[in-house]
C-alpha cells in the first residue's frame, strides 16, 4: 500500500522467563493467537474520533529490544498504547502475547495505596512473583507509605517494578523519566535479553533496533486553517497539531506537494516548509 511503513525489530528471542503453560505450546502461538514474546502490528492506523490520523498503515514486528524515536506528535505514545492493548487501532491487526508489562509516560502522583500493597495486588492479578527490580533500581522510599508521598523517581521505579512482573513483553513509554544515573543504567541492564518496545529520546539503548516514526518527513507550518480535519484525512499526513494560531502538519516526503496544494486550495497560508 502506498505510504505504508514497515519495520522489523530484532531477531526473535524468547528469554527463559516464559511461563510453563506457554512453553507447552509447541506451535509457538499463545492462547490469544499471538506469537510468544512477539508483538506484531499489521497495517495499523489510528485516529481519535474524527480527528487527524496519528498513525497510518504502520507495520511493525517487535521481537527483541526495539526503540521508538521520533519528533513530538509523531504517534509514539499512541503506538505504545496500541501495542500494549490499552487502545484499539482504528484499522489494522495487532497480535501480542498474554503477559505484557506497560509503563505509561507519566505515572500518577496521587495514588493512596502503598507501593508494597500495589505491587502485591498487581502480582496477584498477574499470578506472578515480584522480583528484585525495585532493589536493583535503588528504591529508597517507604514501601508502606501512600505512593503519593514518593518522589517522582521512586514512583517511576514502582511503575517499572509492576511492568517487570510481565513475563513476555515490555512496553515502556519514556521509562527513564525521573530516574537518576545509576537507576537509568540499571534499567538498561534489566532490559538486556528482554523483548521490549521502548520510546527513548535520550539514546540509553544504543544497541537496540531503532524505529524512527518520523523517519523522513516534511513539517509544514500553516496559518488560517479552517478545516484541519480535511488536512488530517489526506494520504501521507502523519499528524496535525494546533500550535497557537498556526497548525503543524507532519507529512511523508512523497506526499508533501499534494498536501501543500490542498492547504492552499483550502485558503491556508504557508508559514514554513522544512
Amino acid at each position: 500500500m502506498p505510504g505504508a511503513r514497515n519495520f522489523t525489530g530484532a531477531s526473535i528471542e524468547i528469554a527463559g522467563t516464559v511461563p510453563s503453560r506457554m512453553r507447552a505450546k509447541a506451535s509457538g502461538r499463545d492462547v490469544r493467537g499471538g506469537y510468544l514474546g512477539v508483538v506484531l502490528l499489521d497495517q495499523v492506523s489510528k485516529r481519535y474520533g474524527r480527528g487527524p490520523w496519528v498513525l497510518r498503515d504502520l507495520t511493525l514486528e517487535v521481537s527483541g529490544l526495539t526503540v521508538l524515536t521520533g519528533a513530538n506528535g509523531t504517534g509514539k505514545s499512541t503506538l505504545l498504547k496500541i501495542a500494549a492493548g490499552v487502545l484499539k487501532p482504528t484499522s489494522g491487526r495487532v497480535s501480542r502475547p498474554a503477559s505484557v508489562g506497560y509503563v505509561p509516560e507519566r505515572f500518577p502522583s496521587d495514588v493512596k495505596m502503598s507501593a508494597s500493597a500495589y505491587l502485591a495486588h498487581m502480582g496477584r492479578i498477574r499470578r506472578a512473583e515480584s522480583g528484585d527490580v525495585l532493589e536493583r533500581l535503588g528504591f529508597v522510599g517507604s514501601m508502606t507509605a501512600p505512593m503519593s508521598e514518593l518522589s517522582k523517581g521512586n514512583a517511576q521505579k514502582v511503575a517499572l517494578a509492576q511492568a517487570f512482573l510481565a513475563s513476555d513483553v515490555l512496553v515502556l513509554d519514556e521509562p527513564w523519566t525521573g530516574l537518576d544515573a545509576s537507576a537509568a543504567a540499571e534499567l538498561v541492564s534489566l532490559l538486556e535479553g528482554r523483548t521490549a518496545l521502548v520510546s527513548d529520546h535520550e539514546g540509553h539503548l544504543a544497541s537496540a533496533t531503532r524505529v524512527d516514526l518520523s523517519g523522513g518527513h516534511v513539517t509544514i507550518e500553516l496559518s488560517r486553517v479552517a478545516e484541519p480535519d480535511a488536512l488530517g484525512a489526506l494520504e501521507g499526513v502523519r499528524s496535525v497539531q494546533a500550535r497557537g494560531s498556526s497548525v503543524r502538519v507532519v507529512v511523508a516526503p512523497d506526499r508533501s506537494d499534494q498536501v501543500l496544494a490542498e492547504a492552499l486550495r483550502l485558503g491556508c497560508s504557508v508559514r514554513s516548509v522544512r
Binding site: 506497560y102 505509561p104 507519566r106
Partner: peptide
C-alpha cells in the same frame, strides 16, 4: 483509578 493507572490495570489484567 485515574486514566493512567487504569491503563496499567487494563494491561496487567489482560484487557
Amino acid at each position: 483509578e485515574d486514566v493512567v493507572r487504569r491503563e496499567i490495570t487494563v494491561v496487567s489484567a489482560g484487557g
